[in-house]
Amino acid sequence: MSALIRSMPLLAALLALVLFPQFGSEYYVGLLTRIIIIALFALSLDLLIGYTGLVSFGHAAFYGIGGYALAIAFQDASVIPLWQALPLSLAAAAFAALVIGWISIRTSGIYFIMITLAMAQMFFYFFFESPRYGGDDGIFLFLKPVLMVGSEDILKLDQENNFYYFALSCLVSSYLLLVMILRAPFGKVIKAIKANEHRVRALGYSTSGYKLVSFVIAGTLAGLAGFLEGAHSGYVNPSYMSWHESGVCIAMVILGGMGTLYGPIVGAFIIVLLQNFLPELTEHWQLLLGGIVIAVVLFLPRGATSLYPRICDLIRRSRRGEREPQETADD
């Protein structure tokens, strides 16, 4: 019963997201599309931070590569076939994640944090300083991808609602994919690696292989988010890969609650909405954003979503008149 109650908000949120375009104006559908894309980005990082115990500070590299692969291959095309563009972006991000992961996974702790950052900076400067790919102006895309069968257009992403549902289905299927992966033996191993890598190795597992696979999956999903963002906004520039982007992504994962999968989605909602509405309040909105993040780190380290089960327990206990505190299990 408790599992049902706990997944209720998730289902309700999904229902609200599915119905939203029927009520919201085009501006808000566009904003929500962006949030969904960023949520996918944060979700992919949760696999690394929350489940594998790899603190990647260069996750934005894959996000950027997903976007750039689309932009570079199709900047002059007269039509962007989805079934070519999407696999290309995913493959580019996956390949980059394989290379960066292979190098980074040999290190751990602060070295891992720093080497992933350095790798992302390398990509950032590569695109920043290459006139061929637009330098710091980036690349503009004037078309949206189209899904075609034969010569028939099945799904045109130039309509905001279509794009919205496409992005939402990407987020939902990525979420389900991660749920499945985490339930599989592979998921058990990476969670065990996070808990105690030495013991897992002592049990005979080659942990670096598992970490690399996890890194590649996360990178590929980040590439998917980058692909969506590039297609949605119509331009790709080096700031996709900036270390600020990686930092904000970590902030979203923690803010929502890491190691939960739904937490980072909530975190993305919080951060993007703050980024969107705080500037209306004050010119110095980053001060507020910084303050909020600091407060969360200090007082709510398990994130905003950790409040919900706590409140549930509180209500249940007060109903039964129980007193003793109950530790909520992690999974």
């Binding site: 923690i254 980053q286 910084g290 780190v297």
Partner: peptide
């Protein structure tokens, strides 16, 4: 965990810049 140090000091950057 280092993760929280990264995040908190990242937020400090935002605060100091502003």
């Amino acid at each position: 965990d280092h993760l929280y140090q990264v995040l908190l000091t990242f937020a400090l950057i935002l605060v100091f810049n502003e």
